[in-house]
Every structure is written in C-alpha cells, then in structure tokens.
C-alpha cells in the first residue's frame, strides 16, 4: 500500500474573545495530530461532538488554516506536496484531487443554483471542459449517483434529503478526485436512505478507485464501511486501529466506552443498566491536565492525571493507542455482544 496523505504534528488553536476590553482565550481544537491515509482505504475518524473530527477534516482540505503542522499529499510519482503552506492559487490544482462531501444536504447546495450548475461549477472553475463536453460529463456523473438527466434543471429544494446528498456526492466526484473527505455524510439521512447512500459510496469507491476519509460519530456505520479507524477525544487521537481489531479488542478506555454505549438493534443483546458510563465531555476550554480522558476513565490512576500518554503501537500490533496502560488493560470489544443476524 502506498501512502496518499500524511498529517504531521497538526494543531489548530482558536483564539476566542479578545475584544477591546477582554483578554483573549485559547481553545485547542486539535492537538498534535499525526496520521496517514493509505491509497484505496477508507479511514474513519470517529468521536463525539467537539472532539475535533470535523475541524481535522477541514484542516486537511485547507478549508480552515492550521495553526501548526503539515499535511503532505503524495502524488502519483512519489513526490510530496505540503498543502498547508500553499496559498489560494497554488493549492488550486490539488483541490481537484481532494474533495469533500458535507453533512447537511440542505445547506451544502446553493439554493439559487440549478443542479446542473452546482455540479458543473468545479469543472468551470478549473476550466476543464465546456459546452457539450461539460454537459455530458455532468449528466454522466449525476447518472452514476442516481440522479436522472431530466432533473438537472431543477433547484435543490425540489429534491429530497437523500437525493440532495447524491448531488453533493456528484459535485465531489465530477473532478475525478483521489481522496474524498466525507464529513458525517449520512448522519442527517433517514435509515433507509442512509443505507442507499452507504452502498452508493461503496460502489463509487470501487468504480473510481477512491480513498475516503469518513468522518462519523456512528460506530455502527463505521464498522460497516471503514478499513481503519481513528478515534479522537478532545482534539487528541487516542487510538488508531484496523476496524476489526478495534471492535474486537479496543486499546483505549475511551474506545471501550464508545462501544459500550453503542445501542445494538437487537433486544436480546440489550445492555441494561450501565453504571460505568460516567461524566460528559469537558468543555474544550478547560481541558484536563495529563491524559485528556482521565476525568471519565474508570481505569485512571495518578499517572494519568499528571502525565500525558503518547500515541504508540501496542504490543507490536497494527493498533496504536494513547493510554499509559494500553498494553496491559483487557478492554471489552463489541463483537461478542453483536447479533449473528437479525433476519434469517
């Protein structure tokens, strides 16, 4: 496998307040993030609200400036381009290769533009083609995501949520990208529509040879679609692992907690009362000292309160975790609680 994208020591700090009469405060949204994305894989970034997963996605694609760190995009020939230092003009060619799908199908499509123009816009901006060729390319891309050609003259409000998300996908794919960042792309959709879109993303990946960064809070969906998972908590990567290993045997207590909390659509596997889930995500502004998770961690000891653990490979496996006791803790996975199959 070849690396397609690597993120090195990425940090993002927001400065809040700081008016005429106020001291500004710093809010660390991303803290020293390191990760790589391999060509052809689906890398999921999971975590609860405020963990920084969306910010990370936006920093990678340079929709937001980063405070520190580097993002390398690996070209076909093996050369690396550092994206964060490029200015608007210089990054434009790479915007063809890295595209994004947004969460909200309502706000991500311009209500004043027709579907055709929405999907054609990237082609026009990059001056890739025009006239008949442009038209054909837009129509065929829309056809691939299941939007019929007779609908291209309509405005977004004429479409249902699922169809709008398909249009958003078409806009991302029309430039033949290499890497697609899907930010909660199915979260706003109804269950049956969500399944359609997940299948569509799967098929398109096959057809176009795509790599996905799939940002989600839904572990069930992540288990279904991802090859590898990055778990984030309070702006830190706490665990990265191949999907199956992560669900089989998580290495970080936070991952265990997430899996524990995940409701499973089978009443016979009901989890019942669970006193071990405790606390809530602290506000980003008052981040705990030491391990960011120690305030909610049932395994926390003094060391956790004092010293910040580093992300490291655990016992020589493909799993990495940032927990002082990752090597020794025996954490509970999710599969043993999973049903065989609900419907025969």
């Amino acid at each position: 496998m070849t690396t397609l994208l690597s993120v090195e020591n990425l940090s993002k700090v927001y400065t809040l307040g700081g008016g005429l009469f106020k001291q500004s405060r710093e809010l660390v949204a991303l803290n020293d993030i390191n990760l790589t994305v391999e060509a052809g894989e689906t890398l999921a970034i999971v975590g609860e609200s405020g963990c920084g997963k969306t910010t990370l996605g936006r920093c990678i694609i340079k929709a937001q400036p980063v405070t520190e760190g580097k993002v390398f995009y690996h070209q076909d020939g093996g050369q690396k381009v550092e994206l964060t230092s490029l200015d608007k003009r210089a990054i434009k060619p790479w915007r063809r290769d890295i595209r994004m799908i947004f969460q909200d199908p309502m706000s991500s499509l311009n209500p004043n533009m027709r579907v055709f123009d929405i999907v054609a816009e990237p082609l026009r901006v990059h001056r890739i083609c025009k006239g008949r060729e442009l038209e054909e390319r837009v129509v065929s891309t829309l056809a691939k995501v299941g939007i019929p050609a007779d609908a291209i003259g309509r405005y977004p409000h004429a479409f249902s949520g699922g169809q709008r998300q398909r249009i958003g996908i078409a806009r991302a794919l029309v430039l033949d990208p290499k890497l697609v960042i899907a930010d909660e792309a199915v979260s706003a959709l109804d269950v049956s529509i969500q399944a359609q879109v997940l299948n569509l993303l799967d098929d398109l990946k096959e057809e176009f040879g795509l790599t996905y960064i799939f940002i989600s809070h839904d572990l069930g969906v992540v288990n279904y679609i991802a090859d590898r998972v990055v778990v984030m908590y309070l702006g830190h990567v706490v665990e990265t692992s191949p999907t199956e290993l992560l669900f089989e045997r998580p290495r970080h207590p936070y991952t265990e907690m997430l899996l524990e909390a995940l409701p499973i659509a089978d009443p016979t596997r009901r989890k019942g009362r669970n006193k071990e889930l405790k606390g809530e995500i602290p506000y980003l502004g008052n981040r705990p000292q030491g391990c960011p998770f120690h305030t909610r961690c049932k395994y926390a000891e003094d060391k956790c309160r004092a010293e910040k653990p580093v992300l490291r490979p655990i016992n020589g496996t493909a799993q990495m975790a940032a927990c002082h006791f990752a090597e020794t803790l025996n954490l509970k996975g999710a599969y043993d609680a999973a049903p065989q199959k609900v419907i025969a």
């Binding site: 529509i193 969500q194 399944a195 299948n199 288990n223 279904y224 659509a265 599969y335 049903p339 065989q340």
Partner: peptide
C-alpha cells in the same frame, strides 16, 4: 436490514436499502 449490523468483516453483508 438497512441498519449496519456490528459484524466482523467476514460476516458482513451488503446493506439492503
């Protein structure tokens, strides 16, 4: 059958939306 089940890769079936 639209909800992804928590299954290992080997047991995974394509969703039937």
């Amino acid at each position: 059958s639209s909800v992804p089940q928590l299954q290992r890769k080997a047991d995974r079936v394509r969703l039937q939306p």
